[in-house]
């Protein structure tokens, strides 16, 4: 399942994002209906921790693409049902910049 996360500057002036890493990095996380984390793109990975000062012009967007193979962090196919997926842009703030959750249904 392809996932796309877009961060847009919807204001009318440039802003500078403070982003963790040499390159902008986003995590994708899937939780079940009880809020338990099923899958995380960055789980178990170690990244570098500089802070990149990235200018984002008005109307400019940053997009991240990720594929979820509908398996849990343990590698097993997830059961049919409804799941929530959200993406998190890693910044200098705890918790980063998170998208609202989107609901997906696995048949």
């Amino acid at each position: 399942m392809p996932l796309v996360f877009t961060v847009a500057n919807t204001g009318n002036s440039p802003v500078t994002l403070y982003l963790m890493g040499r390159d902008p990095t986003a995590d994708f996380q899937v939780t079940d209906h009880q809020g338990r984390q099923i899958w995380s793109h960055l789980r178990g990975r170690v990244g570098m921790a500089p802070l990149r000062l990235l200018p984002l012009e008005a109307e400019q967007r940053l997009s991240f693409h990720q594929e979820w193979n509908q398996r849990s962090d343990t590698g097993k196919p997830v059961a049919p049902g409804t799941y929530l997926v959200r993406a998190i842009l890693l910044t200098d703030q705890p918790g980063g910049l998170a998208s609202p959750p989107a609901s997906i249904r696995i048949e």
């Binding site: 399942m1 996360f5 847009a8 204001g11 989107a102």
Partner: peptide, 22 residues
């Protein structure tokens, strides 16, 4: 403060993305 940065997530095949933009 107006929120200038709007994160949006789209999961194809799932529900359309939503936004908490104020």
């Amino acid at each position: 403060r107006s929120r200038l940065i709007r994160p949006v997530l789209a999961a194809r095949g799932g529900q359309a993305g939503s936004t908490a933009d104020l």
